[in-house]
Amino acid sequence: MIELKSLSKHFGKTVVLDGIDLTIKKGEIIVIIGPSGTGKSTLLRCVNFLEHPTAGEITVGDLTVDVNRASRADILSLRRRTAFVFQNYALFANKTALENVAERLVVVDKWPKEKAYQHAREVLERIGLADKADAYPASMSGGQQQRVGIGRAMATGADVILFDEPTSSLDPEWVEEVLGLMKKLASERQTMMVVTHEMSFARDVADRVIFIDGGKIVEQGPPSEIFSNPQDPRTQDFLKKILATNPV
């Protein structure tokens, strides 16, 4: 279970997140939508302290962290319970696909090397890239790189995987294979928080869609409600614009 209590983030005088309250059940698929620059990515980045939140409380599993009293150890154990998938994949450029997936197991979770690599091979098989085990990121397509990025996130069975616009940097030809993998993960009830502009993914896969604007949760609910019957004028306006260019 994940719980965020009045989570805020200020950059200087700019308020990017303005007291976010959110509870996510185990196995729930959350999709976060909203206009650019409204704090969607910042929200994800705050959950594992890629950005240090200004105020609030974060609970992941049995660990609760008051962001203003978070010790270095708190932050590390929070990061170990979460996994992050980046817009630009951010695979370790000096490591092969297999090493990218195994890195966290070996270095952070201190698994024996053999066991870690065995597990990493199984992950690569699950994402359909067993044949790319020894390939370096530079030699893979964007879609393959992002699938390895997701594999890296899957490897430790984190309590939640945070997806930050995972398909936004991809050439259109690779988008489907990445969304397909995410759908597979969703069907296995992996808890996920996904920031995306892929409205069809939100509609088909999400248990709950959250619309954020101005650093606040404006509206949330099952996709059927949000897409067919949005209540807030800002939600209506956003959906009208985005569905005009990306019909569901």
Binding site: N48, L50, L76, S77, R79, R80, T82, A83, F84, F86, N88, A90, L91, F92, A93, N94, E103, R104, V107, V108, R152
Partner: peptide, 25 residues
């Protein structure tokens, strides 16, 4: 910078980040 973010996101300490990711690159 993405290399640092990725390493930090999986819970690496600063010295692990330096030794395993940054210095080799």
């Amino acid at each position: 910078r993405s290399q640092t973010e990725a390493a930090v996101s999986i819970g690496m300490t600063n010295s692990q980040l330096m030794r395993r990711i940054i210095l080799p690159q």
